[in-house]
Amino acid sequence: MNAADKKRVLREMLFARRFEERCYEAYVERKIGGFLHLYPGQEACAIGVMEAARPGHDYVITGYRDHIHAIKCGCDPKAVMAELYARETGCSKGRGGSMHIFDVEHHFMGGYALVGGPFPLAAGMAKAIKMKGGDEIAICFLGDAANNQGTFHETLNMASVWNLPVLFICENNLYGIGTATHRSTAVTEQYKRACSYGIESSQTDGQDIDQVYAAAKVAVDFVRSGQGPYFLELCTYRYRGHSMSDSGAYRTKEEVEEWGKRDPIVILRDRLVESGELTLDDYQAMDKEIFAEIENDIIPYAENSPEPKVEELEKYVLAENDPYVKGGVR
C-alpha cells in the first residue's frame, strides 16, 4: 500500500466505524430490529485482507458480523443500511437482515448465521472456481469460535485433500459469544489447528492494518497461485458486545480499555501523522465528510425506502416458472 492507499483505507476503516456506530443508534431508536452484530475494533481485518485480495472479483463469504465485509466487496452502504431497516431496497430486499447481507453482483456471497456454516460453502465455491478455471479465490471470514464446529475440521480436511483455492481468515476476537476462548478451546492459537490438515497457516496482529495487509498478501498469493488452501489468523478484539443483547459481564473494563489502546484506526492514523502524510485536521475533515454521507445520504435512503409488499411474501422461496417442475423442455 502506498501513502494514497493508506489514506484511503484509513477512511474506509473510519467509515466502517461510523457506519456501525450509526447502526447502534438506529437500533436503540428501534429503527433496526432483530439481531445486530457490530464490527468496531475489527475493521483492519476485513479491510486489510480484502485490500490484498480483489474485491468484487474474489468470492467472499462470512458469518453474521457481515456489514463491513459486504461494503468492502463493493456493496453500496445505502443498500446495507436499507437492509438493516428491512426495506425492499435493501441488498437482500428486506428478506435477509443484518445477518444475511448478500451482494452476488460484487461476489459477496452472503452472511450466514449458523456458526461455522460458511466453511464448506467457501470450499464449494473454490471447487467451482477450480472446475471453471478462473483466477478468483474463495475467502471465508469467520471468528475463532467457528473453529470448534465440525465443519471447520471437515472442510479443512477436504480443502487440503482436493487442493482447493480457498483462504480461511480467522478473526480471533477472543470470545465465542460471551465465553472466553481459553475456557472453550484446547488450542487457543487458532493457526496451529490448521496444521492437522496439512494447511499452510500463519498468525498476525489484526489491529495493525499494515501487518494484516502484508500477511494477507502472502496468503492470497499462495492460494491464487494454485498451491492450495491457506489459513490466516488475525488477533483482534471487538469493542462492542457480541450482539446488541450482550451484558458484557464476561470481560473486565480493564481488558476492554487495554484493547482500546490498540484501536486499528488510531494505529494507522498516528502512523500517517507521524510520517507526515496526514494531519489531524485532515482526519477531522475526513470524519466530518463521513458523518455527512451517513446522515445526509445513507440514513435518509433507508428511512425513505418502501417496505417489501406483503403480497410478495412468498416470492423467492422457489424458482419461478422453472420448466422442469412441469416435466421439462426438450
Binding site: 466453511f119 464448506p120 460453502l121 467457501a122 471447487k127 474463495a138 477436504m158
Partner: peptide, 22 residues
C-alpha cells in the same frame, strides 16, 4: 468425487459449488 465421511460438510461443499453454477 469420493468424499470423506463428513456428510454435513461435503453436502455444504456441493451447495457452495452450486452457488457458482456447478
Amino acid at each position: 468425487i469420493d468424499t470423506p465421511i463428513s456428510e454435513n460438510s461435503f453436502t455444504g461443499l456441493g451447495i457452495g459449488a452450486s452457488f457458482l453454477g456447478v
